[in-house]
Design a protein around this nucleic acid. Structure first.
Lengths: 172, 172
DNA sequence: ATGAATAAATTTATATGTAAAATAGGTCAA
DNA sequence: TTGACCTATTTTACATATAAATTTATTCAT
């Protein structure tokens, strides 16, 4: 008795037998998304960390707060960043320890408060976003503008056509 | 004295003044990658978890081991998954606790061993990969095959042209 | 007004990820 | 052979992420 299984199993995810062309294409697509994501994310994270002591997660919080100088309630921050409440709690408390973020009390509701940038936070973010753009630019330096635009609009069409697993606001 | 800063700062990342068209395009591209990644990753993770008690991280380990029934040394696993040694240590030890992975001693070198799928691990993976494909398919159900292929080849071209922050093997 | 339900945010437990230190085995020059 | 240096892996300390439990405050029907 031979062991043909060994030969059958030594294949990449998109090269199994009995897959339709469509299925292979879908898997290849997803592997490329993961690949590009990891390629850019890692360097972005290191660069932000080295220069400003920021992670991408912290940067994302600062970016939201920068768009809303009047401050953003924790729950809204959680929804707009699409991460859990608990995650935002931790991020904001670390950013407060860093001196980049403040809490503003909400008069009408003592449970709630708004997170907002400190002056230092605003300055740090405005430098960090320049670095952010630099890193993304470097990663894409050999890609033509038209290729970037083509992929972007393809991805955008996908995210609009993609049925999200959760119910979505119609007017979100 | 007015406060014009408040108006200037309430903008999305790709809509700052004084950005070139190229810079805006790069930022939009990156935001779409993050977006699509999060859109698919989350559901994939929940589905694998609900049905098989697997995370995407664990699934990725199983996928590598499935391609190498003779087992894969820890260091090689770390390199092929592009995650740290410590991360692989933890994943493999949890997968061993789950009964999906085994350690095979290496005769010539007592420091090293190969991780390999147990029979149960192989069976679980072979079911899990079907679910993996289903979930990705559902996410892309409204997108045409030609659009998927176009974006995939765009992304693939990018990852090839992208200068990685670290030195790369020429023959990797 | 009071008690039940709801809501905002935090805390807890756990998984995943990194970088850096520690452990332990291998290699090799002198 | 022994000491210095590699190498494979694990451990530690920490950041980030989730889900579920908890805390505290608000709302609302009675």
């Amino acid at each position: 008795m031979q062991t043909p299984d060994i030969q059958n199993s030594a294949r990449p995810l998109d090269d199994e037998p009995n897959l339709t062309a469509r299925q292979k294409a879908e898997t290849r697509f997803w592997l490329q998304v993961l690949n590009v994501n990891k390629l850019i994310y890692g360097d972005l994270n290191s660069a932000l960390n080295d220069h400003f002591g920021l992670s991408v997660a912290k940067f994302d919080v600062l970016a939201q707060l920068h768009r809303h100088p009047e401050g953003v309630p924790m729950g809204e921050l959680s929804r707009s960043l699409k991460v859990s409440n608990g995650n935002v709690s931790g991020l904001v408390s670390r950013l407060r320890k860093d001196g980049l973020v403040d809490r503003l009390a909400t008069k009408a509701d003592r449970r709630s408060f708004r997170a907002s940038l400190t002056e230092k936070g605003r300055k740090v973010f405005e430098e960090a976003i320049k670095l952010h753009r630099q890193v993304v630019s470097e990663k894409l330096q050999n890609v033509s503008l038209s290729d970037i635009d083509a992929v972007t609009s393809g991805l955008r069409a996908m995210s609009m056509k993609t049925r999200s697993g959760v119910e979505e606001e119609v007017n979100a």
